[in-house]
Amino acid sequence: MSERVVDARGSFCPGPLMELISTMKVMSVGDTLELLSTDAGSAADVPEWIKKVGHEMLDTEQDSEGTWHIRVRKAK
């Protein structure tokens, strides 16, 4: 099991969710990923996609500088 960090701060295109999807494609089942995003929309659209595909949301928090830290696990 590995843990990855994808730093998508300041990414408008392809954007945090596309970065997350691209990275999850090359991960193994059980691996976790922490997405860093400055796009408030990530707090909603990442969980939506994770749920739709059937992966696992671990937690979501925003730090004092406004960066979202979204942790997910590849489940299938």
Binding site: F12, C13, G15, L17, M18, I21
Partner: peptide, 10 residues
């Protein structure tokens, strides 16, 4: 399209 809108740029 892969995400929840028709292009990555909102």
């Amino acid at each position: 399209y892969p995400i929840g809108r028709v292009h990555s740029l909102e």
